[in-house]
Amino acid sequence: MYRQESYVFGTRVELTLYAADQAAAAHAAAAVLAELDRLHRQLHAWAPDSEVAAANRALASGQPFRPSPELAELLYQGQRLEVQSDGLFSPAIGALVAAWGFHADSYAARLPPADGLAALLAARPRLADIRWQGGQILAHKPALQLDFGGMAKGWALDRARRQLLKAGISSALLNIGGNIMVLGRKPDGSPWRVGIRHPRRAAAMLSLTLNDGEALGTSGDYQRYFELDGRRYCHLIDPRDGNADCRVQSVSVLARPGSDAGLVSDVASKPLYFAGPQQAANLARRFALAGWLLVDAQGAVWVTPALRQRLQWQQPPDSLYVTGAP
């Protein structure tokens, strides 16, 4: 076994893998982490020298921009997923995220100016506003600013999985800030077991096993947030109303194996978070999820039947509702 940690995409990355020898393991891990670091620098939403920042400057001024193959893929996927989620997920709301102060490593406990927020909402920035012309993108909407923070980690998981398989690694666990994917099983034949953090305690709420190619993604209000006048505001911004209210505590989704399992696990948690427990099942079906778990504002847990069977509770909830499908 070989384990290495790093800090990428503004979060901790943990890579655990098995290989024939330490040198092979170290080489494979270093290559994956180097690629993640490259993508982080390229896709950083507010670093002035990133490609996303350059694209945002062009979009704001109404100028065309030629994206790299990686950025073009994210744009195409983002447009598709924006439609699939009924606009509950949108990488076009970077200006809204910045207005709330979350385009910074540290942020103040303050509300955005009401008039500025209203203007951004009135503009209704969406990736659907981007037009493609000869390999370039163009949008006549200054309020449209790209931020791939809601999909880049999961998208990178899929790339890392392919990279590890190409390097001959068939047993691994990759965790990018709570977005987790596994390859195969451990050498003794046992499955990988991972934990989901309790949104209000610094410990695991539960654990579950992951099968080869499955991906687990969690969105919650407990990592990037601030409190003001007794209310909590988090980095999860609802594209419909620009609200940063923490309406639920966390949502975890389990994506089925597939070439885009990581991407699905990252993106799908956001629409379910905004939809809440009553509407989550409808959205989960659109993403063909293997299961989902939601902790509502009162701390009650809502979970699908199939996923419940796989859970081992470390801190059982006071209220548990088995609901929805799958």
Rank of each mutant, 00 (worst) to 15 (best):
Q133D: 12
P191R: 15
N175G: 07
A139M: 08
G168S: 04
G178W: 02
I180S: 02
M151G: 09
S171P: 02
K186A: 06
K186Q: 13
N179D: 15
L144M: 11
V182R: 08
A143H: 07
L138N: 02
L164K: 11
G189N: 08
G135D: 05
L157V: 12
A160E: 00
A143Q: 09
P191W: 10
L146Y: 12
P187H: 11
G178N: 10
P142V: 12
G168L: 03
V182N: 02
S190N: 13
I180C: 04
A172I: 07
K166V: 04
M151K: 07
R161V: 12
M151C: 11
L157A: 08
A156Y: 03
G177V: 10
V182C: 11
L146F: 14
A156S: 15
R162C: 05
L146M: 08
D147A: 02
A172H: 13
A143V: 12
K141W: 15
N179K: 15
K153Y: 06
G189C: 11
W192N: 03
A152H: 04
Q133M: 07
A156Q: 04
D147F: 13
K166G: 05
I180T: 10
I137F: 05
M181Q: 14
A156D: 05
G189S: 10
A172T: 06
L183I: 11
I180P: 01
A139I: 08
R193Q: 14
W155C: 03
G178Y: 04
G150P: 07
A152R: 02
R193P: 06
N179G: 14
W155E: 03
P142E: 14
G135I: 06
R159N: 05
A172P: 05
W132L: 02
W192V: 07
R131N: 07
S190M: 14
R159H: 09
I180R: 02
G168Y: 07
A139D: 14
S170H: 14
S170V: 11
A172Y: 13
W155S: 01
L138D: 13
G189P: 04
K141E: 14
W132N: 00
D158R: 02
A143F: 11
L164Q: 03
R185C: 10
R162V: 05
I176Y: 01
I137E: 01
G178S: 10
P191C: 12
G168N: 03
I176M: 05
L146K: 00
L138S: 03
R131Y: 12
I169S: 01
L164D: 00
G184M: 07
I176N: 01
K153I: 11
N175E: 07
K186I: 09
S190F: 12
L157T: 13
G150L: 08
D188G: 09
W192G: 02
I180E: 01
G177C: 08
R159C: 05
W132M: 00
H140E: 15
R161I: 09
H140R: 09
G150R: 07
P142Q: 08
K166H: 13
Q145L: 09
L174C: 13
W132H: 02
S171R: 15
A139N: 05
K153P: 04
K141M: 12
L146P: 05
S170R: 15
D147W: 13
A167V: 01
N179C: 12
P142R: 01
G134S: 03
P191D: 03
S170K: 14
K153H: 10
Q133R: 06
